[in-house]
Design a protein around this nucleic acid. Structure first.
Lengths: 140, 140
DNA sequence: ATGCACTCTGTACCCAACTACAGAGTCAAG
DNA sequence: CTTGACTCTGTAGTTGGGTACAGAGTGCAT
């Protein structure tokens, strides 16, 4: 049960067949081997890669950024210092995202708590979530 | 120093003037009062709202979702149960995002650690990050 | 009182990321 | 050995989220 068709990997990753080909054109997915007919033959772990892409997109990464993440690996063709620098940059970015999410989360928690009562009070507490702090970050 | 011009709020929120008007058309920003000339006059806290929108976008929320977040508030015109249900739904969504980010973060940490050595080993450890677990979530 | 920056409306254009054909060939279950 | 689902390439269309004018009016510092 080794190689999968494009339809199979697409279904498994919950994306469209056209999208898989699109990612290939965009360089996010290596060109797979073909059979004589020209049909693409995917190794099953392609599904993981596609799923990663889908999830990372939902986290606000662009396809370009996702490509960079996927290229990060222990790689003899690249200096360790480089890889580590890239990894650290991404980590800072992610740290900032998590912080922002945590703030919104806290605001929602507070909202739920407040709403338990019946008061008509309060403006929009959500706005306080990402206020001002302007966490140091390179503004992507 | 009360009311601000569109140029001022745009600059303060680090977005373009055209974008502010765009958000107004999209219903993310209430139509502000105008002076006789037709110039928009913004209350200064508009800046916070705009900043929130900018940040939330970076977290992968669509403008539609951001609108829903901003509409969440203690509101006499809406049942408390409704607001709380909405809040909880958003919280679950955010929880999932934070989990995914934490996984990528962990993978990057591991990568950095591994890379400290010099081995040529290892495929793409990042892929393990968002693997399979398929956390229960309504697939937005 | 004038010039330069700013704002107005409206329309058109742009980019990322798909999504949908058309027209031709392929696979495999019955 | 046919037939219906699947795949191929290539090109075109769509959606979300802006961005860029054009042409006309406004504010204000000198």
């Amino acid at each position: 049960m080794k190689p999968m068709t494009i339809g199979e990997v697409a279904k498994a990753a919950e994306i469209g067949v056209e999208t898989v080909r699109f990612y290939e054109r965009e360089g996010l997915l290596a060109e797979p081997p073909r059979r004589q007919s020209g049909y693409r033959q995917y190794p099953p772990d392609t599904v993981r890669r596609l799923r990663f892409i889908r999830r990372a997109k939902e986290l606000g990464f662009t396809l370009k950024e996702i490509g960079e993440l996927l290229d990060l690996r222990v790689d003899p063709a690249r200096s360790c210092a480089d890889v580590r620098a890239l990894a650290r940059a991404k980590m800072a970015d992610i740290e900032a995202k998590m912080l922002d999410l945590a703030r919104i989360q806290a605001a929602l928690t507070e909202l739920e708590r407040t709403c338990r009562g019946k008061g008509p009070t309060s403006d929009c507490p959500i706005l306080d979530a990402l206020d001002e702090q302007e966490v140091t970050r390179g503004d992507r």
